[in-house]
Design a binder for these strands. Structure first.
Lengths: 226, 226
DNA sequence: ATTTAGATTGTTTATTATACAATATTTTTG
DNA sequence: CAAAAATATTGTATAATAAACAATCTAAAT
């Protein structure tokens, strides 16, 4: 009985989100072992005895993306006895928001970004975990402008609005969005303009890493056009 | 190495909150084993191989309080290597909101309600877990009227307001609170009145268990008087 | 009948959210 | 060089919600 209790295994799995090619993407690895061999999965690994859960998650994140100091949050712990077909593995899921320009991902047949809107079949309960991370990201976006964690350091307001629209899965009104966003603490207007566009260049903005004022916590509401 | 990874133990610990004697109370058990022998702790237990985390939490809850079908939510997973002084125990913390009238707790020297404002020294990181559960309860209260989970089936608006004030840790305006609360879906006015008071009896209300309209999600904001 | 303690109720103002379209700027094209 | 094209930028009016604030009502006790 006592032994029975002790044979859980515990892992961390990380939903790594970024914006790439105008779409929300998640980093997936192709499993090269059973179970679910050759299926895609979110990156993960066993928690070592010497590290806490955050550290384990950061380690896995760094292994896969070589990024540190980014938005990483514990998401939920999934512990269904049948989630792993062979042994009892409880996983503490995290999610990370990163800038694609910060990432050094050597994509290959076994490690690649996938649009969250076009996910391949996934191992374990990883589909559920990704969906939950999207829900949580939406909740965070209602509280504070975490979207800037997904954007490059310098971004246009149109890029930011597109990020919001992708995460919230609805269209926002341009004027209301801009009115709202410019009141956000930390957003700083630059005297630089985008160059890539073939038409009128857009002003670039950046986020200073300021603690966000709780008064402005509710950022984009669910039922509005922004 | 592989064996090293596998020797985590995983438990669930549950912050059980109720309102009792006009105060927010948490159910604590006195430990009769080392470590932390004779210290108070929140109820918990090992996760069995056959049950998922919710089931483990519900089992522990039922063992201690004999209640079922109440508000139970996964809170956070705590996995610091040093949180348990002897072995590596990762705990998935839950919190429950219950009605004191529903509970059959045989309080004793080893099992008792404690005001959250007057907690005794606690085992492990349980103080941190309780504090986090209070923070989460506040967040939930901003989203929906979960406070009714803590109140008896029939309650007065004054009782409800007191519950809010305890959880939000601030005074609310009586008129604004009532205006707000009566727009809540599910709240039903009864043709019954409180009897205990020695002065003017107050009308009783109850909550019908309706799915709450997301339009009315934001319930009591942080920075207001209600 | 009066007192007492708590219950109940409304209005005004400020803030925030929403709906909605015309103008400005730069590049490209003819 | 003028016109067209594409995207960026901006404001106002209305609706909804939040906030501040105090007098009256009611049943029990005296």
């Amino acid at each position: 009985m006592f032994n029975e209790i002790k044979t859980h295994e515990i892992t961390v799995d990380i939903v790594i989100l970024t914006i790439k090619n105008d779409a929300l993407n998640v980093l997936l690895v192709k499993r090269n072992n059973e179970p679910f061999k050759n299926k895609w999965a979110i990156p993960g690994g066993y928690v070592r005895m010497s590290e806490n859960l955050d550290e384990a998650a950061m380690r896995v994140l760094k292994e896969k993306t070589n990024v540190e100091n980014i938005y990483l949050e514990q998401l939920y712990t999934f512990g269904d006895p049948l989630r792993h077909p062979v042994s009892r593995v409880i996983t503490c899921a995290y999610f990370a928001l990163i800038r694609s320009e910060d990432v050094e991902v050597v994509t290959s047949d076994d490690l690649a970004w996938h649009r969250v809107s076009e996910l391949p079949p996934l191992a374990f309960d990883h589909k559920e975990i990704i969906e939950y991370s999207l829900k949580r990201t939406r909740e965070r976006l209602e509280m504070c402008p975490v979207a800037y964690q997904l954007l490059n350091e310098k971004f246009t307001l149109t890029e930011m609005q597109k990020a919001y629209e992708m995460i919230m899965e609805k269209k926002l009104d341009k004027r209301n969005f801009r009115k709202k966003v410019i009141t956000t603490e930390g957003l700083r207007e630059l005297n630089e303009f985008s160059k890539s566009s073939s038409k009128r260049p857009a002003r670039l903005y950046t986020f200073d890493n300021i603690k966000l004022n709780s008064k402005r916590a509710h950022f984009i509401k669910k039922g509005s056009k922004g």
